[in-house]
Amino acid sequence: MSEAPIISIQNLKKYFKVYRKKPGLLGSIQSLWSREYEEVKAVDDVSFEIYPGEIVGFIGQNGAGKTTTLKVLSGLLYPTSGEVSVLGFNPWDRKPDFQRQFALVMGQKNQLWWDLPAMESFLLNKAIYEVPDAEFDKTLDKLVELLDVKDIINVQVRKLSLGQRMKCELIAALLHSPKVLFLDEPTIGLDVVMQKVLRDFIKAYNQEFKATIILTSHYMGDVKELCKRAIVIDHGQKIFDGDLQDIIDQFARNKILSLIMNDKINQKQLEKYGQLKEFEYPKATLLVPRAKAAKIAGQLLTDFSVADVNIEEPTIDAIIRELFLSQKKVH
């Protein structure tokens, strides 16, 4: 990648102080004069660069520091230390020229006016972001078409389903055609069908508008389908940055062998081939070391009468869990 990065973070740190209350009446009274504060390292020395047009998955458990990082990138949080540049701006300056070029969408917060049709919020954003009439109409038409919401943008937001609302939230956030998009759990609470619709939209938007997107999500499906690159963060520290495939290669120690047996066999007989995850005759699932998977499968085929055998990669969730577990051991 010869281009200059559009987002660059160097040694970013963001620490918070939180207060711990002791339980009970006594604890409450005690807290009147002495309070114990604890320093939480929400982001602890994180660096990365993101290039124009990338979709990057930001993965981490609750409280890992994902949202904090996004907030720093949006200029909402002042970093404790480190250097941050987004679109060539220091986000913290919160210059209107910068703000007009990015959008932050938070699945758990909404900007639409609850009691009015979404169209009213769109028009307000048009004024705030100073979008010219022609451009507004063009972008709106395009977004409405991509998300298929023509019939609902004039219905009061409170009468919309969660999925419909999220679609309108996205439109409101994208009307000014931001070059950089921060999506914080955009599919949270949505059903599987709607998650898929939104993913397809994000992909299409990225291609159509050449936008750079950072996405955080609990749903690995989102990340797997959208992002080639993933940054994994745990306890405020970056523990992985690279191709999603690399995570699989590095951390998926096992493969899954699914068997359908012809003959009745003993559970014990299978256990010597690998870690038995499930056994319900005639089906069995074994976890086997990656490197030996093919060999073990062959062994099983010769040792037993097997109707069907399948070698699969573990789910990405399981791999990430594995990754976090390996980190915990380090800590």
Binding site: S74, L76, P96, Q99, F102, A103, L104, K109, I128, E130
Partner: peptide, 17 residues
């Protein structure tokens, strides 16, 4: 409730908004 985040990311004087 953290909703202020939305206001602060807008290209307009936050105090005014």
């Amino acid at each position: 409730n953290g909703q202020l985040t939305i206001t602060l990311t807008r290209p307009i004087n936050s105090q005014f908004l």
